[in-house]
């Protein structure tokens, strides 16, 4: 079901260690109850596409929040803050997970909430989404869109900011997982996607993986050459269906 009206804008929320963060929040008009979704942006930051995707989720009936993971670098524009975060080696995993926990609490505190919350992330945000689902209680569904470095082939790639390969935490995962991947992607490569699937399967976790031929990394981004309309349309339908199935 889609909703023709929505409310969207910037909100404050209690982030990691009580810091006051900012987020983009969009929900359908009406009293609800609406399931919630936390959307985690990619490394380049809290950009226009992230806002569009948040509104798209609201259009399909979810109260969606996209926390700005780089707000602590501010003040400044999202692109400048992303540049600062990048120069510092990226944000720390535990801080991101804490921010996601805060965004989840924000959603559950809203009068229109139905109490269920999913998490979705794109690119590095896909890794963060998987990580959060392994480390937080209360994640009811998780969607990993081409998250790289969930599988880490070279341990030297681990850093103080990203000290773990999330695949190694899979045993703690409680939420059902939807994974979308392009078969032309290099990170995650098809072999890494197979490795992740094998881990989920061996631990008897619920998962759905969909691999798209003719698509590489970030094939949802309509303003980039890598956009693949057919695959993106199918992928979005799978995201919406998966969240409704697990969160309604």
């Amino acid at each position: 079901m889609s909703y023709r009206g929505m409310v969207a804008g910037i909100v404050s929320f209690k982030a990691h260690q009580g810091d006051v963060g900012e987020a983009y929040y969009a929900r359908p008009t009406g009293d609800g109850p609406f399931p919630g979704v936390v959307l985690i942006h990619h490394m380049p930051g809290w950009d226009d596409w992230c806002m569009e995707a948040t509104r798209k989720l609201a259009h399909f009936g979810f109260a969606a929040i996209a926390p700005h993971l780089y707000f602590r670098e501010g003040p400044g524009t999202p692109d400048d803050l992303a540049a600062k975060a990048r120069a510092a080696g990226g944000v720390y995993d535990n801080q991101v997970v804490g921010d996601v926990a805060g965004a989840m609490a924000f959603l559950r505190a809203q009068p229109e909430a139905n109490g269920k919350v999913g998490v979705i992330g794109f690119c590095s945000g896909g890794r963060h989404a998987y990580l959060a689902a392994c480390q937080l209680d209360g994640v009811d569904a998780v969607v990993d869109c081409w998250g790289g470095n969930i599988v880490v082939d070279d341990p030297s790639q681990l850093t103080p900011q990203r000290p773990v390969a999330p695949i190694d935490l899979t045993e703690k995962l409680r939420a059902p997982v939807l994974g979308l991947f392009g078969n032309d992607d290099k990170n995650p490569s098809p072999a890494q996607v197979d490795t992740l699937e094998a881990k989920l399967k061996s631990l008897h976790k619920y998962y759905e993986f969909h691999r798209y031929d003719g698509a590489g990394h970030g094939f949802f981004a309509a303003d980039r050459p890598g956009y693949r309309p057919e695959q993106a349309k199918d992928g979005w339908q799978k995201v919406i269906s998966f969240f409704h199935k697990n969160l309604d």
Partner: peptide, 14 residues
């Protein structure tokens, strides 16, 4: 100067 090759913020490039 910081130099990197990644997804851009603004340019219509992958």
């Amino acid at each position: 100067a910081n130099v990197y090759f990644d997804h851009p913020y603004h340019a219509a490039l992958d």
